[in-house]
């Protein structure tokens, strides 16, 4: 599976990419939402992992845009923010999987395999 990771923190995105490759996925990293928007939109079979607090276009906005695609990819939100801030950012968004930081491999694997 192809996994897109939109994360501005270099340490988090590097370690995510290592573990995802380890799990056998093809990983593409973007430091911000703009980076992803400049390329071909993710396919419906892809997974996009989005950090909520991104510089520039926010994680919430990127998720709204991705959900409007003809065949939207699987979306996973990762965030270290408080529940209140998460709810605020994701207002009006169709339900997505949310992983709170700090992340671990098990919960990531769990989310990526679908339930």
């Amino acid at each position: 599976m192809r996994v897109h990771v939109v994360e501005d923190d270099a340490g988090v995105s590097d370690s995510l990419s290592l573990i995802l490759q380890n799990l056998g996925h093809e990983v593409i990293l973007y430091p911000d939402a703009e980076g992803l928007l400049r390329t071909t939109p993710p396919a419906g079979a892809d997974t996009v992992i989005v950090d909520l607090s991104l510089p520039g276009i926010s994680g919430g906005q990127l998720i709204r845009w991705l959900q409007k695609l003809a065949s939207p990819p699987v979306l996973v939100v990762i965030t270290g923010q408080s529940q209140g801030a998460i709810d605020h950012q994701l207002r009006g968004v169709s339900p997505v999987r949310v992983l709170r930081k700090p992340l671990n491999a098990e919960s990531l694997l769990h989310v990526l395999t679908g339930d």
Binding site: S15, I19, S53, P102
Partner: peptide, 25 residues
Amino acid sequence: GAAIAHELNQPLTALMLYLQAIRRA
């Protein structure tokens, strides 16, 4: 506070994933 907790979560996440990557391999 909340923002600092977020800031701490970043290295902790990376640390955990690096270690788990080694563990799995």
